[in-house]
């Protein structure tokens, strides 16, 4: 059943991604001040949003694990975190490429950039912590707690732009500016459509990773059973 869901999502995501690539490259006009490089923004912001959805999913799954003590939620949390880290890396790298062209530097210690990196490091620490614990229950419990702490850090990332003065461009989506249109509606719609495409891709990655995680747990359980029988 899950294979069919993955294939179905892939059948929707692939044409959408190709269509978006075509529209972004050939139909959307250049930005007045930045020129063609602004197109990277159609991947930069949606990648961050998908990463944020992944972090949020991981946090909810971690809370659910602590409440229900069901390993299924731990598997969802780790799959969501790994997927979110991949998209957060896309966000950071595309931001750096944009910064090199527009600011003339690869990296600025601007609050929002710094916080995006901190969030990435926090969740990378989550994966490191998991790899250092052998006992499955202990690993699930400790990493669930760390994920909740990490989500507090990500929440601050999200709000950082309002708290500090920054050289990072301010919010441009009308849902974040209180309805004020800061970019062309066509560009804004393209961001939402590409967010949908990347979100579908993220869900596919997560489901594939979840299946791997469940298979790994089954193998570990069989290994423990075989060990106990000997």
């Amino acid at each position: 059943m899950r294979t069919k869901v993955i294939l179905g999502l892939g059948a929707v995501a692939l044409p959408l991604l190709l269509r978006n690539l075509y529209v972004i490259m050939f139909l959307v006009p250049d930005e007045m001040e930045q020129g063609p490089i602004y197109r990277i923004f159609f991947y930069h912001l949606p990648a961050f949003l998908v990463a944020a959805v992944g972090y949020l999913t991981a946090m909810v799954a971690s809370v659910m694990y602590l409440v229900k003590k069901d390993q299924k939620y731990d598997a969802i949390a780790v799959a969501a975190t790994e997927t979110a880290l991949a998209f957060a890396a896309v966000n950071l790298v595309t931001g750096m490429i944009w910064g090199r062209i527009i600011w003339g530097i690869w990296w600025a210690w601007d609050p929002r950039l710094t916080w995006a990196l901190i969030s990435w490091l926090v969740y990378f620490g989550y994966l490191m912590l998991r790899s250092a614990i052998d006992d499955p229950t202990e690993r699930a419990k400790n990493s669930a707690v760390l994920s909740i702490f990490g989500s507090a850090s990500v929440a601050v990332t999200w709000k950082a732009i309002e708290w500090w003065r920054t050289q990072h461009p301010g919010p441009v989506l009308s849902i974040r500016t209180g309805g004020v249109q800061k970019i062309d509606p066509m560009m804004e719609n393209m961001i939402y459509v590409n967010f949908l495409a990347l979100l579908l891709l993220g869900v596919i990655f997560m489901l594939v990773r979840l299946r791997q995680e469940e298979a790994q747990r089954e193998i570990d359980a069989l290994r423990r059973y075989a060990h106990a029988m000997n």
Partner: peptide
């Protein structure tokens, strides 16, 4: 959180400092 881990001395600062940055 890290008291029972292998490489405890390494894991603690790695988890602690990013969280403490704010």
């Amino acid at each position: 959180l890290t008291v029972n881990l292998r490489l405890r001395e390494l894991m603690l600062p790695m988890l602690l400092y990013p969280m403490l940055i704010p």
